[in-house]
């Protein structure tokens, strides 16, 4: 479904300097992102979040980014000024984090936060902004939008909070949405419901979605294409529908070690890591 990539990343590397020496968090990651759902999967520490954050210019100050290319339309993301970043971040590329609790202001009602975000991008009066905010809450399938509008973040459940975050992220109509484990803290059914909302919105608006998760099974049932990361490297790129034909032993290992609901209590196959996987 994609012809011209929105974002093209070539040979992205991120190195953090720490008291114990440099940490190579991301090593030579390349991908093109079209109007599609791209999954990034891997174990914790494999560099998924850092890859996503680099696209948003959110790398911690002790990290150094190098890349042969990081092209977003006509913008070179490699050397944007902080000022230029502010025009891109949130407006054209947006991010949803794992825990909505840390992304929402705890002392402001959800409604006020949405209105504030909305009026930053649209010149409307207070009444119209409220109407739009309620509409937005409806669009993320919140059944009782009036109540949620007047609630504080701690008064709503995790799933509800994540829906609110999605609603807010979509206000400026970004072209790329990066979702970093947006559902990992939620119950299975709620998780799937939130994903369905993301799914619908991405389809309707023709956005590109980068879905970061540690859950290979889940990602492959949701995304079009999956990058599998291991120790900062992309070890395999595969169409989600062809996951059963994965070639890399790491991808296969990740799939095999999941417990199955077959009433079989035998040992689970464990992943035997080989040093060669971590070689660039």
């Amino acid at each position: 479904m994609s012809n011209e990539p929105l974002l093209s990343v070539k040979n992205l590397a991120i190195t953090f300097s720490t008291p114990k020496g440099p940490v190579n968090a991301v090593r030579g990651v390349s991908f093109d992102l079209g109007r599609e759902r791209l999954g990034i999967v891997g174990e914790s520490g494999s560099g998924k979040s850092q890859t996503g954050r680099a696209i948003l210019g959110l790398t911690a100050p002790n990290g150094k980014i190098t890349a042969d290319q990081m092209q977003f339309h006509d913008l070179d993301l490699r050397n944007l000024t902080p000022r230029a970043w502010r025009k891109v971040r949130g407006a054209r590329i947006s991010m949803i984090m794992q825990d909505p609790k840390y992304s929402l202001n705890p002392v402001m009602t959800i409604g006020d936060q949405i209105i504030e975000a909305y009026r930053e991008h649209h010149k409307v009066n207070a009444k119209e902004a409220k109407r739009r905010a309620i509409e937005m809450l409806e669009s993320v399938k919140i059944r009782d939008p009036e109540r949620v509008f007047n609630a504080y973040p701690h008064e709503v459940s995790g799933g509800m909070g994540q829906r609110v975050m999605i609603a807010m992220m979509l206000i400026p109509d970004p072209e790329i949405l990066i979702a970093d484990e947006p559902t990992s803290a939620l119950d299975v059914t709620v998780q799937l419901q939130v994903m369905a909302i993301l799914d619908d919105l991405v389809r309707e608006r023709g956005m590109a979605l980068v879905f970061i998760s540690h859950d290979l099974q889940l990602v492959s049932s949701f995304c079009d294409r999956v990058l599998v990361m291991y120790q900062g490297l992309v070890v395999e790129e595969i169409r989600a529908s062809e996951l059963d034909q994965a070639k890399h032993p790491y991808t296969k290992g990740l799939l095999n070690c999941l417990p199955k609901m077959d009433g079989n209590h035998a040992e689970l196959p464990v992943l035997t890591r080989e040093a060669s996987w971590a070689e660039a």
Partner: peptide, 9 residues
């Protein structure tokens, strides 16, 4: 995962 940390001291 610190396995790719280099320490030469």
């Amino acid at each position: 995962m610190n396995s790719h940390t280099t320490t030469v001291k």
